[in-house]
């Protein structure tokens, strides 16, 4: 697979504060790469360095296997932190300016405005836009140069649920076109819903990186409801169960590796019990995220 972005011990310090610490990342073509981390974990600083506005203290990075110049940046569409436009210019004029800088075909403007559903308001000044419209215009400006890579930093920040859903739809649509996307967010749910790969940053250091699919691998937890007086006992008898817990009228059965809900269902059926509810609990990215952060904290402070 073709490597699009590679960073090598990328570091940025502000005085005594180390915002990004020896960061090694790799993003390949076609990935939707989520950068996760609490606020202040160095996501925006990292992206600022990758986009040439923040000077790295040490370390290096390559885009498309080459050292970055302003010409590489023309192939990338990026919005960092929040949308930035000339408030006194209309949406259309702002995009014309972006296209001029990127050397993009002005004919694209109509298309990207269509994509983010802003065509009706394109003649209005940017300062009259709502937050959701500003965010959408930002995505349009990132798309106007028909970029190979899209970088979005907290694209749903401050939006209402409908706005969030709209932006998520747009991202999915763009990803379906085969573009590589780097998405920085502290919203785990968002990353899990749209990303294929993710990295977790904590206080400027990389603590985990891998595919999103792998989240939720490992032992399974199955919720069971069935009308039987001796249910907990029977569940314990199942070869695959590690433990059985009762919670809100449901039983939570943790299974050993290689056992799945199907096996449990079959077992119950053989015992003459029909479950009215049997569901595998999905291990969320949130859980894993907190686990990883907890692990690294305890590693750091071995007391």
């Amino acid at each position: 697979m073709e490597t699009v972005l590679h960073t090598d011990k990328l570091t940025k310090t502000f005085g005594r504060l180390c915002a990004v610490n020896r960061l090694d990342l790799e993003v390949n073509r076609g990935q939707v790469f989520g950068m996760l981390g609490p606020n202040g974990s160095g996501k925006t600083t990292t992206l600022g360095m990758l986009m040439g506005v923040t000077n790295p203290t040490s370390g290096s990075f390559t885009w498309f296997g080459e050292r970055a110049t302003h010409l590489t940046r023309k192939k990338i569409g990026a919005v960092l932190e929040h949308p930035i436009f000339y408030p006194y210019l209309s949406g259309q004029k702002n995009l014309e300016l972006n296209a001029l800088i990127k050397g993009a075909d002005p004919a694209n403007i109509e298309k990207v405005l269509e994509t983010v559903e802003l065509s009706d308001r394109k003649q209005d000044k940017y300062k009259t836009y709502s937050l959701g419209m500003k965010q959408r215009l930002a995505i349009a400006s990132a798309l106007v140069g028909d970029p190979v890579i899209l970088i979005l930093d907290e694209p749903t920040n401050g939006l209402d649920p409908m706005g969030i859903a709209e932006i998520r739809e747009i991202i999915k649509r763009i990803a379906a076109d085969g573009k590589t996307i780097i998405l920085a967010s502290h919203l785990l749910d968002e990353v899990q819903k749209v990303c294929t790969h993710f990295a977790i940053l904590r206080k400027g250091s990389l603590v985990h990186t891998g595919p999103v699919e792998e989240v939720g691998k490992g032992e399974e937890v199955v919720e069971v409801i069935a009308y039987h007086d001796d249910l907990p006992h029977i569940l314990h008898e199942f070869r695959g169960s590690l433990s059985v817990k009762s919670e809100n009228g449901k039983f939570l059965v943790r299974l050993r590796d290689d056992f799945h809900s199907v096996d449990l269902n079959k077992f119950l059926f053989e015992k003459g019990i029909v479950a009215s509810h049997i569901v595998t609990q999905k291990k969320s990215l949130e859980k894993q995220f907190l686990e990883i952060l907890q692990e690294t904290t305890s590693h750091r402070q071995p007391t």
Partner: peptide
Amino acid sequence: RQNIIDGLS
């Protein structure tokens, strides 16, 4: 900042 991100040196 945005001009530079967009590709001006």
